[in-house]
Design a protein around this nucleic acid. Structure first.
Length: 585
RNA sequence: CGGGGCGUAGCACAGCCUGGUAGUGCGCUCGGUUUGGGACCGAGAGGUCGAGUGUUCAAAUCACUCCGCCCCGACCA
């Protein structure tokens, strides 16, 4: 490619509303332009990177027997009704009507369509396993698109689905994918952690996320240096030092006492006759929505100094979603305002107003006694509460958010560190959720009809591109990992008014291409400084500078990552670059 | 969906409070000088001031409505 003819609209100035590094650099490097909130156009330079990523995805999918499909992005309502997700997906799904008034949607993921094919065509365990994948545009009507291409409403995803006859088969398919994912992200130059994650609305038994540590990410993960434990904060646990209640006086029943002006855990720690935060029970009211769309109030109890994790609560009560109850709902349910709520007699109070209240308590409250909590009467609290004696707990669960510095749940020595991270891939053991609801069954070896056991495996293509930038950049611009760089090498002719330099540049350009290298020739009539700045910005791994040294039969080879330049004889330069570039592929 | 902010030339912004000629820098075009880390001089082109309604002799400027975009939160396989 000749730069003079290639469309790379670089920007000197930083566009005002680009916050994260990858967004700024994608714009400045002339790779993307925004069309609308969360909708981006990919310009030629970005498209070259995307194609490189897709090629790696295809190679690794094929290597584990994956077969590429191309399914419709436009889906009829009916197939989503079958799995119940027409309702579950809610406002996140783009919906439209055709001229006849029939409902359609734009696919957010493709379990339904793939399973729809499988149920018609797969009849016997002998046809299994099948590993099907595609690289497709997905649509999600995000409430808040943000961070450039990291959180968008239209994006490219590699999604794969496995079909097995039993759980053992799924385990193998899952492990194959996991290994392939590791190779994919390694090849793309990403450092990542594989973490345990919640399966959420996808359903299924197990899931791993592939997380790139970066502040641009929206997830938080906890990791342990000493044993390698890693989990999404929505799953992470930690070991806590036990708190002894032996010094607390025994009681026969909780004792109510007035607490005027006390609204928070913090208030009560300083209130005369109050209690330390870890001797209080935090009481939160949530509304849980199940798959059928029914709402139920849930009381979540935690130690006063602990933070609730909402996803954990949702998982604990089997809900699709939970939300904090509104102040009016809380009053109606318990007859008191937030700040004076407690688990003691809460079920009876709710029942009196005809509500069924579910109480979930965090494991850290097990066996605790001498605790203080709200009395369900404004400005009154209870002390001497014995959790298991006084509160009708329906279920115990891990509800709390772990914090940096807590002890690793997996090893003796380690402590946890919490990081922001970007999800670039997610693999699920779906099980039979979709095959059962859609009637995708095969005959097993015993001649018995069983639902297909499925896995689902996704990778965000643009997120790989953006994550690579987040991880590999400096003040001058992008530093592409070699395997996904838009070009292997750029040849910079410093002065296009010098015929010898131009001729040398042209010759190098042709020879590099003949050697199989993707080469960009900067033949623009610009000053050398402009060309250097642009080359640094777009991040091509190697730059060959054709300048005055050609009189000594030499050019400069500049390594973008190391920022080092060496003189190389013209006779050696092709072989030199070739070995460098090929090593990176 | 709640809170906040911003829409003026391709980009970044000033002008708005206090109504009266639409401006600056970068980029772009032409000419000249320059030519190894985003050159300099000169001459130009480029704007329904987000849209609509209203107030006024007069609206980029004041008021109202709508739209769009960004940030925080909620939400998010």
């Amino acid at each position: 490619m000749r730069w003079s003819q290639f469309f790379i609209p670089t920007l000197r100035e930083v566009p005002a509303d680009a916050e994260v590094v990858s967004h700024r650099l994608l714009l400045r490097a002339g790779m993307v332009r925004q069309l609308s909130a969360g909708i981006y156009s990919y310009l030629p330079l970005a498209q070259r990177v995307i194609r490189k990523i897709q090629r790696i995805l295809r190679e690794e999918m094929e290597s584990i027997g994956g077969q590429e499909f191309f399914l419709p992005a436009l889906n009829p309502r009916e197939i989503w009704e079958e799995t119940g997700r027409w309702a579950v997906m809610g406002d996140n799904m783009f919906r439209l009507k055709d001229r006849k008034g029939a409902d359609l949607c734009l696919g957010m993921t493709h379990e339904e369509v793939f399973t729809g094919i499988a149920r018609h065509e797969l009849r016997s365990y002998k046809q299994l396993p099948q590993v099907w994948y595609q690289i497709q545009t997905k649509f999600r009507d995000e409430a808040r698109p943000k961070s450039g291409v990291l959180r968008v409403r239209q994006f490219i995803m590699k999604d794969a689905y496995s079909f097995d006859v039993d759980a053992a088969g799924l385990d193998k398919s899952f492990n194959d994918q996991r290994a392939a994912y590791q190779r994919i992200f390694d090849r793309c130059g990403l450092k990542y952690a594989i973490v345990e994650a919640s399966s959420g609305a996808m359903g299924g038994s197990a899931s791993n996320e592939f997380m790139v540590k970066t502040d641009a990410g929206e997830d938080s993960i906890a990791t342990c240096e000493s044993c390698g434990y890693a989990a999404n904060l929505e799953k992470a646990t930690s070991r806590l030092a036990a708190i002894s209640d032996d010094t607390m006086p025994g009681t026969n029943a909780p004792e109510e006492f007035p607490t005027p002006g006390v609204r928070t855990i913090e208030d009560l720690t300083t209130f005369p006759g109050g209690a330390a935060a870890n001797r209080q029970i935090k009481t939160l009211v949530f509304i849980a929505t199940n798959e059928a769309g029914e709402n139920q109030p849930v009381l979540a109890l935690l130690r006063g100094d602990h933070q609730l994790h909402e996803t954990k609560l949702a998982d604990a009560v089997g809900a699709i979603a939970v939300r904090a109850a509104h102040p009016e709902e809380i009053r109606e349910l318990l007859g008191a305002n937030a700040g004076s709520l407690g688990g003691v007699r809460a079920k009876e109070i709710a029942q009196a107003s005809g509500r069924e209240l579910r109480i979930v308590a965090d494991q850290a409250l097990r066996n605790r006694r001498g605790m203080t909590t709200g009395a369900n009467r404004d400005e009154h609290h209870l002390r001497g509460v014995d959790v298991e004696r006084d509160i009708m707990v329906d279920s115990w669960a891990d509800l709390r958010t772990v914090a940096s510095g807590e002890n690793c749940p997996n090893c003796e020595a380690g402590t946890l560190a919490v990081f922001k991270a970007l999800e670039v891939g997610h693999i699920f053991k779906l099980g039979t959720k979709y095959s059962a609801s859609m009637g995708a069954r095969v005959l097993n070896q015993d001649g018995k009809e069983v639902p297909l056991v499925m896995g689902s495996f996704g990778i965000g293509v643009e997120r790989i591109m953006a994550a690579a930038i987040e991880l590999h950049h400096d003040a001058d611009g992008i530093i592409w990992p070699r395997a996904i760089a838009p070009f292997d090498v750029v040849v910079t002719v410093t002065n296009t008014k010098q015929p010898e330099m131009v001729a040398t540049g042209e010759k190098l350009y042709h020879n590099l291409r003949r050697a199989g290298l993707e080469t960009l020739l900067d033949d623009r009539d610009e000053r050398a400084g402009v060309k250097f700045k642009d080359a640094d910005l777009i991040g091509i791994p190697y730059r060959i500078t054709v300048g005055k040294k050609i009189t000594d039969n030499a050019v400069e080879l500049f390594d973008r990552a190391k920022k080092e330049s060496i003189d190389v004889n013209l006779d050696d330069i092709i072989a030199r670059v070739q070995s460098l570039a090929l090593a990176g592929r």
